[in-house]
Amino acid sequence: MDRIASLISTNRKAVAGIAVVCVLFLVVVALYWKEIVNFWPSGEKIRNELSGLEKLHQELQKEIIEVQNIRQVRQAFIKQGKDFWVPKRDGDIESNIIKKVEEVAKSSGLKLQNIGNARPTKVNEDISFLEINIEAKASMEEISRFIAELYKTNPCFYWRKCVLRPFNPRDAKDIVLSGTLNVVSLTSDNVAKVLMGEEK
């Protein structure tokens, strides 16, 4: 101890310099401790990282499945885009939809006795229904052809209500068709862009 004390007393400047360097070293170690630890990561840190990686893998798998499902649904929706009436693409629905029904009836040889006004029903800002009442008296063959043609036509015509009954219960030659058709209209600009192929 005496020797050390005498060594320190004879080399005061050097000892002071070494002390300053030591303090600076400790400050640097304290400031960059995280980086220093990362420079040589411990086994526990590696295990924690692996555990985190495993969780991320699981999250990725879940995300892939969800995204795949959503993509499939979206693709299916885009594929059946013509089933919906898109005003931006198809024009004004109220003025055009009755013409469409009449065209189908004409092409199938059915004479519609009555066709009601289009009645819009708003589901939300982007979706609305348009209902049309129709009535006809024709043979079963003509009515079947009309229903089949309507099935093939775009947009998709949904039957909200349909009654088929014989005009005369004792004679099945003339059948009375009384029904309510429904068309889905999508008014959103985003949907229009997607369905018109402007955006994937």
């Binding site: 229903i147 099935y151 998709c156 949904y158 039957w159 909200r160 349909c162 309510t180 429904n182 068309v183």
Partner: peptide
Amino acid sequence: EPGNYELI
């Protein structure tokens, strides 16, 4: 539920 479109 817009209705039944597969009536045919």
